[in-house]
Structure formats: structure tokens, C-alpha cells
Amino acid sequence: MTKIKSLADLKKMKSDLQSKISLREKSENPEGKVVIRVGMGTSGIASGAKEIMEFLMEETEKRNVDAIVTQTGDMGYSYAEPTVEVKLPDQDPVVFGDVDKKKADNIIEKYIKNGELLDGIIPQNYETIDKK
């Protein structure tokens, strides 16, 4: 592949990019997307959240999982960083703690693809105790 160095180079690659994107868009419907959010607070970053987010972005793309991978602020679970929140379509979000690459792999293969629950889920009611 030719190297892209300037905006002009980028413009030249536009049609190539567009074809790659439109291929995927055919299968897209916004409600059917999985939303994955990686906690990117100080403690998350220090525990390797960046690598986990890059892993999730690459692997969901490679394995054809229709997902949006994005970052979020601190979720307040500093003891369990990196944390990853996964929202499957029509389901409540689930937060996974202490996520390394192996666990991230399981999240994609087991939870997202098959709906199997995994160890290390942070119970949802954990933060709502204060609010009640």
C-alpha cells in the first residue's frame, strides 16, 4: 500500500476508503449495534485501558461484530480497572472489571456473540445504594 503522508494523499485514498465502508454499511442498523465503552479515567489509563480499547476495536472489526467501541470517563470502579461496559441491543448494560486481553477476547466470543455471562461482572446495584 502506498504511504499516506499528507491530506492530499488522504484525498486520493478516499474512494478506496468509501468502498470499504459502504461494504459494511449494508449490514448496519443502528439499533442492532453493540456498544462497548472503555473506562478511560486516570486509573483506567494507568491499568492499560488504551491497549484494551485498541484490542476491542481491532478484534470487533476483524470478527465482523457490528459494534461501536468508544471511551467513557471514569466509571468509579478504580479497584477493578480496566473496566469495560457492554450494551447488547435491547439489554441492560453490563460492566466487566479487570479486563485484560484474554477477558476482552471472551467478552467478544462468549458474551457478545453467545450471550453467555462471564466472571468479573460488576453488579449494577453497586453504585445505586447511595442514591436510594
Binding site: K3, I4, K5, S6, L7, A8, D9, L10, K11, M13, K14, L17, Q18, K20, I21, M57, E61, I68
Partner: peptide, 26 residues
């Protein structure tokens, strides 16, 4: 500038990000 050059293509797209990352890296 990048958005202008890409003419409305979303920077959230994985492929777009990959190209941009490469450009910055170079």
C-alpha cells in the same frame, strides 16, 4: 482540515481511523 479533505466521511469509522493513524505516524 481532515474532515474537509474527507468530505463528510465519519472519523469514527475504523478504516478512516487506521489511515489517519498511519498518516500521523509517518
Amino acid at each position: 482540515e481532515v474532515k474537509e479533505a474527507l468530505d463528510g466521511m465519519s472519523l469514527e469509522e475504523y478504516q478512516v481511523r487506521k489511515y489517519l493513524k498511519e498518516m500521523i505516524q509517518e
